[in-house]
C-alpha cells in the first residue's frame, strides 16, 4: 500500500463538516415542508372496509380449527358464495389503480406532492455535492477494510491504489443520506424520523390492488381444510388436570 495520505485540515473544515450540517438541515427543512403540504385526506370507506375484510378473512383462515365445523362452513359461505359473498368482486367493478388515479385527481396530486418533497431536494443536493465537492478525499476510517468496500466508500474517485479506508466526499454524502435517521429521531421526535430508504419502500408499495388481494384471500379460504382442534383439547385438559391432581 502506498504511504499514508495526509488530509488537509481545510478539507475537514470546508467539506466534511459543511456536508454533514447541510444534510441535517435539509432533512429538518424537508420534514417541515412535507408537514405543510400534507393534505389531510379522508380514507375511502370502501377501501377501509376491504382492508378490514381481509384481516377478518385471514383470521378465519388462521384460526379456523378453533370454531365448530358448522360455524366455519357458515362463515366460508358468507365470504365465498358466488352470488353475494363478501370476498367476491364483481367482474365489471374491478378497476385498476391506474384508472382510479386518472378518475381521482386528488390522488395524483398527493403522489406528486410526495414525489416533489422527496426527489427535488435529493437531486438538488446531489447536484450540489457533485458540483462543489467532487473528488475530495474527505475522511479516513481508523481501521482497514477489504476491497469490497471500495464502491461504498470511494464513490467518485477512480483510483485503485488509494487505501480503502479513505472516504470520498460523494460517499460521505451517501452515508449521511442513509445514516442520519437516528439523529432525526432525536431532533424531530421518535415517529417523525423518516429516512429516504423508508420513503422509497412506501413508494413501491403504491399500486396495491385490493380486489386482487380479495380474490387471493378467497382462493386460499376455499382450500382450507377444516379440522376442528377442540376434541384434542379434552385429552390435553385431562392431562393437565391429572398433573394438577398429583
Amino acid at each position: 500500500m502506498a504511504a499514508d495520505l495526509v488530509l488537509d485540515t481545510a478539507i475537514r473544515d470546508w467539506v466534511l463538516i459543511p456536508l454533514s450540517v447541510v444534510m441535517v438541515l435539509i432533512g429538518v427543512l424537508r420534514y417541515f415542508v412535507s408537514k405543510l403540504m400534507r393534505s389531510n385526506q379522508v380514507p375511502d370507506a370502501k377501501i377501509v372496509k376491504e382492508g378490514q375484510l381481509i384481516i377478518r378473512a385471514r383470521n378465519l383462515r388462521a384460526a379456523a380449527n378453533f370454531i365448530p365445523p358448522k360455524s366455519f362452513r357458515a362463515r366460508r359461505l358468507y365470504y365465498n358464495n358466488e352470488e353475494n359473498g363478501l370476498l367476491i368482486v364483481p367482474k365489471g367493478q374491478a378497476q385498476n389503480p391506474q384508472a382510479q388515479m386518472f378518475s381521482d385527481p386528488n390522488m395524483a396530486m398527493d403522489m406528486m406532492k410526495k414525489n416533489l418533497s422527496m426527489i427535488i431536494p435529493q437531486t438538488l443536493t446531489f447536484a450540489w455535492v457533485n458540483f462543489f465537492f467532487s473528488g475530495f478525499v474527505a475522511a479516513k476510517i481508523p481501521f482497514p477494510l477489504t476491497q469490497r468496500f471500495r464502491s461504498m466508500l470511494q464513490n467518485g474517485i477512480d483510483l485503485s491504489t488509494v487505501d480503502v479506508s479513505y472516504v470520498s466526499s460523494r460517499s460521505w454524502y451517501f452515508l449521511n443520506l442513509f445514516g442520519l435517521r437516528g439523529l432525526f429521531s432525536l431532533i424531530l421526535g421518535e415517529e417523525n424520523a423518516m429516512d429516504d430508504t423508508q420513503k422509497m419502500m412506501q413508494m413501491s408499495g403504491f399500486g396495491f390492488d385490493p380486489s386482487k388481494s380479495l380474490g387471493a384471500e378467497k382462493d386460499s379460504l376455499d382450500i382450507v381444510q377444516h379440522d376442528w382442534a377442540l376434541p384434542k383439547f379434552e385429552h390435553r385438559a385431562e392431562a393437565v388436570l391429572r398433573e394438577l391432581a398429583r
Binding site: L230, P231, F233, E234, R236, A237, E238, V240, L241, E243
Partner: peptide, 16 residues
C-alpha cells in the same frame, strides 16, 4: 357437547 369441549380448552389454556 361443544360447550364441554370449550371448557376443556379453557382448562388447557389456563393450566387448570
Amino acid at each position: 357437547q361443544t360447550a364441554k369441549k370449550y371448557y376443556a380448552s379453557v382448562i388447557d389454556l389456563t393450566g387448570g
